[in-house]
Computed example of a mutant assay.
Amino acid sequence: MSDDIQRIPIIEEQARVSKRVVDTERVTVRTRPEDQDVVVREHLSRERVDVVRVAVDREIFEVPAIRTEGDVTIVPVVEERLVVEKRLFLVEELHLHRQVERTEVAVPTTLKRTQVEVDREPITPQENH
């Protein structure tokens, strides 16, 4: 019975992948600082107040509030006067006119930046060994 058994060898193939590091190019990076002289410009505002005294000289019965008419702020100035009785008089008003003056200023300054140069050089297969 053992003569009837035939043995057939089984063959199996296997694949294997190997890797190696290969330099393909050289990269050189150079930096150099660079200064650039510039003039920075900006507008500045200045507010000025002109005071105009306006004589009123009339009797009033209570102190008026500070008020604004257009671009003029009006500040009442009062005094008490002794007549036979004490009365309140509006003596004058201060009219405050606002004016905005704009001037341009130029400030010289130096800005710094770095220039970068990149050089690539291929490596030949003989140099890889």
Rank of each mutant, 00 (worst) to 15 (best):
E101C: 02
V63R: 12
D37C: 10
E34W: 08
D71T: 08
Q115R: 15
R102F: 02
V75L: 03
D119S: 01
V83H: 13
V107F: 02
V54C: 00
R48L: 11
V63C: 02
Q14L: 02
V17Q: 06
T73R: 14
V84I: 05
E101D: 12
P125V: 07
L88I: 03
E101Y: 10
P108H: 10
R16W: 07
L90V: 12
A65G: 06
V78W: 01
Q14P: 00
E121N: 08
D119I: 03
P76E: 04
N128I: 14
T68I: 14
E117H: 04
E80T: 15
R58P: 05
E25F: 12
K86Q: 03
D37Y: 12
P125F: 01
K86M: 01
F61E: 05
V118R: 11
Q115S: 13
V72M: 06
V52Y: 06
L111M: 07
E62H: 14
V63L: 06
I74F: 08
R26W: 09
E127P: 04
R98Q: 08
E127N: 07
P33W: 01
E59A: 12
I60E: 03
S18W: 06
D57A: 08
P9R: 04
L90Y: 06
L94V: 00
H97S: 09
R46L: 11
R20M: 07
E79F: 10
V54F: 00
D37H: 14
V17N: 02
T110K: 04
T28C: 04
P108L: 12
V72D: 08
E69Q: 10
N128R: 15
L44T: 13
R41E: 11
V56H: 00
H43P: 13
E117A: 10
V54L: 03
R30K: 11
T114M: 05
K112N: 13
E101A: 11
T109C: 12
V78F: 00
R113P: 00
T24L: 13
V22A: 08
V21M: 13
V56D: 00
R102W: 05
E13D: 13
H43L: 14
I10W: 04
V72S: 04
P33C: 01
R26G: 01
T68L: 02
D23M: 12
D57W: 04
P33K: 14
P125W: 01
T31S: 04
R41A: 06
L96V: 01
R58F: 06
F89P: 00
S18M: 11
R120L: 03
P33S: 08
H97W: 05
E117G: 01
I10P: 01
V116I: 10
L94Q: 05
V17M: 05
R46Y: 09
